[in-house]
Design a binder for these strands. Structure first.
Lengths: 337, 337
DNA sequence: TTGTAGGCGTTATCAA
DNA sequence: TTGATAACGCCTACAA
């Protein structure tokens, strides 16, 4: 493995000149620069990162923190997409992305990566993080932090979030404009910030068209099974007065809803219109393909990492909370009423 | 940020002693060691990684290389699980996992991380990598490499693979033992190593019970839609003499197969038994829950990272290709014939 | 424009 | 068992 000294000797310049040339400094003339760079090429030289970072006092590492429970248990493709966006964008820069799991509320353990803290320039936290743990993280690490999809209105921390409110509003409005007046809401508890946002977006659309809430089920988790249970419950409760459409908080719930309705002998979209949120790969493959609100997951990753790098370099100008818009994807699970 | 010198001064020892104490060397007595460690605690000192790694000539970084196309386009949960296993296991060690995407055959670009090569101790490649690109990688980087789920019989490179052959064999045998004699095979082309392995495992089981191949479709990709197309094709071809069971190369295909059969008015498992491979979260949630072969994805990640670390440290004793077994998960999509 | 020398924070060697 | 001191490879004033 060659070092700077080798390059300098070959090119017949001093160490300093070689270093400056490699870092494209104005202090060295083009001819010398070229001579040095040619030898860099010829030798296949790459600077030793440890030495460089030690001298520069930076590490060009960004840690991506993920709640291991959510990641492993729910195995949500959402993560895959956001992570993809993060890595893809990071690779355009000089930064590397290092992974780190953290435990849940009680076993939130910084020791696990604390020893690497001198090797980190900034932190991305993916998904909801407990307020208390966030505080610990901030206090102990004293590094720039950005929260992606944290859903929280934590004013003092930078974040990138999907426009949950707007998405739910958009979806509901679409159903209304198709002529539906009795729309069922299927989501998660309002205690979860995502649940709250969606519920408010949903209601906003109803209000705008002077419609009343018809029926709702908010006890879902985010999986298919929950969708099934929701339908069982709602159909049981409203036997003689069923809604004509269902807003579902995410695609998995929507898929469960559709499955269960089909099991009960109903036709989609003839008997019920179904709309979801997320746009999973699966959503376009099921039958009928699901109408949904596409969350720009990769873009959230892109923006997150770029904003963080700007923050690290003290030139971030954007808002504390960056809201990413989303897009209605019309497929075949909805029809006009 | 405190440095070693601060600790040494506080503890009233020399730099060398402090360093030795922190690295738990036998050369320093327990009393001194404790004194130093107490001050480490008190000051909240952590060694500077750049300095340490520079001095040690190691980086304790492992790069996880992933084909960006597969990762982003197919968004397979398989990745999530393996990556989870890798990170979880790496966190028990002093190694960090850094992510890196690589392009496809033609734009396989090492330059993108080549500059960080002095910052890497080893490489994990996830999923199939082109033979030619692997060669480039090996020659340019000269670092320990391990291939996870590469499916290839590349003898000279370390690898961790699922027992595809055994899994297909196991699944088929199960169908046969349920009494099925006419079993359809739905998979991907034999040109893909996964396809080849599964097809051979499938045939092996048939042979053992003196059964003939009944019908097969090998043009699938790995998604739900492919499963649908396969059923359309097979049912059309065999109109008057249908199989009683289908072996499907993965769960997504199996799900498509089940959906399409249900659409055509058949009942699962009454009319057809369906078996898949993978065990996705989805598989237990659909109706009926899918019988499948559970691939130990997290374990593959665990083993991969551990083996790589052993290889880095020159104490790996296991086989070049480490084969991970899998497990038949009986659910409700199969019944005896 | 180029070269010299000191510093970045650890580890490791070798006397004491 | 401890304490100077020289690496590790690069960056950057400062001087020439």
């Amino acid at each position: 493995m060659y070092k700077l000294k080798d390059v300098a000797e070959k090119a017949n310049v001093s160490l300093a000149t070689a270093s400056l040339a490699i870092n494209d400094s104005d202090l060295v003339n083009d001819k010398t620069k070229k001579k040095v760079l040619d030898w860099v090429q010829k030798l296949g030289y790459y600077p030793n990162m440890h030495a460089r970072n030690l001298a520069r006092g930076r590490s060009y590492n960004i840690v991506l923190m993920i709640n291991s429970k959510y990641f492993l248990t729910y195995s949500n493709i959402f993560y895959l997409r956001v992570i993809g966006g993060i890595i893809k964008e990071a690779e355009k820069t000089e930064y590397s992305v290092v992974f780190s799991f953290y435990g849940d509320k009680k076993d939130f353990d910084l020791e696990k990566f604390k020893h690497k803290i001198t090797n980190i320039d900034g932190i991305v936290v993916l998904d909801v993080i407990d307020k208390k743990n966030l505080k610990i993280l901030k206090e102990k690490c004293k590094l720039p932090i950005i929260l992606i999809d944290n859903h929280k209105k934590n004013k003092s921390t930078y974040g990138v979030d999907n426009d949950d409110y707007g998405g739910a509003y958009k979806a509901t409005k679409y159903l209304i404009e198709l002529g539906h007046k009795k729309i069922g809401y299927i989501g998660i508890p309002d205690s979860h910030p995502l649940g709250k946002e969606c519920w408010e977006g949903f209601k906003k659309a109803l209000e705008e068209y002077n419609l009343n809430e018809f029926c709702s089920y908010k006890k879902c988790k985010l999986g298919i099974t929950s969708g099934r249970e929701a339908i069982d419950y709602l159909i049981n409760i409203n036997k003689n007065n069923l809604p004509s459409a269902f807003f579902c908080l995410n695609d998995y719930i929507a898929i469960g809803v559709m499955e269960e309705l089909k099991n009960k002998g109903y036709k989609i979209p003839d008997d019920f219109s179904i709309i979801g949120m997320d746009d999973m790969p699966l959503s376009s493959e099921i039958d009928p393909p699901l109408t949904t609100v596409k969350i720009k997951m990769e873009e959230m990753g892109n923006i997150g990492i770029n904003n963080l790098i700007s923050i690290i370099n003290n030139n971030y100008k954007g808002p504390r909370k960056f809201i990413v818009d989303n897009e209605l994807i019309k497929r075949k699970s909805c029809k006009s009423f």
